[in-house]
Amino acid sequence: MKSLQALAQNGGGDNLILQTTIRLTVPFIQLFGLYVIVHGHYSPGGGFQGGVLLGAAFILIALGYDLPTSKRYFPVRTNAILANSGALIFAGIATLCALLGGYFLDYSILTRLLPIDPIEWRSLGIFLVEVGVGLGVMCIMLSLYWDMASGGQMEEGL
């Protein structure tokens, strides 16, 4: 394991087969993650699982290349903004339902904002909340990995 560690630290881990495989599979993983989020309310999956899949795609880039490469594709600032806006979407929609006179997370009351069928609003509300959950989970998973792999320095790592 010590030699593996030395290999990871002096950047000698560049592997053409690994990097090409990752470059080919990452778009499909991201597409599958989006599919899982969008179809979350009537099939297995949902915001959490889709967010984990989207985060795993960026973690794969960080594993196969190195930490600065994954930070170039997905900057730390964007990560912080998206993670917070994901939480804001979830809490914002839930609070909006309460402010409009319904219960917390009761989407059917949103029909006062946009007059479509309350039952359709329930389906749409779950979808909107799951987009927020997916965004938050994706960014938190990626920053968890960044912190874990670089010891909190966010500069050098696996």
Binding site: M1, L4, Q5, A8, V36, P44, G45, F48, Q49, V52, L53, G55, A56, I59, L63, M141, L144, Y145, M148, A149, G151, G157, L158
Partner: peptide, 22 residues
Amino acid sequence: AFTEATVGAGISTILFIAAIFR
């Protein structure tokens, strides 16, 4: 099963390995 496959087999293994490399 879906949650276990993504979180248990995917992310937590990667996080364990990232911690072990330290």
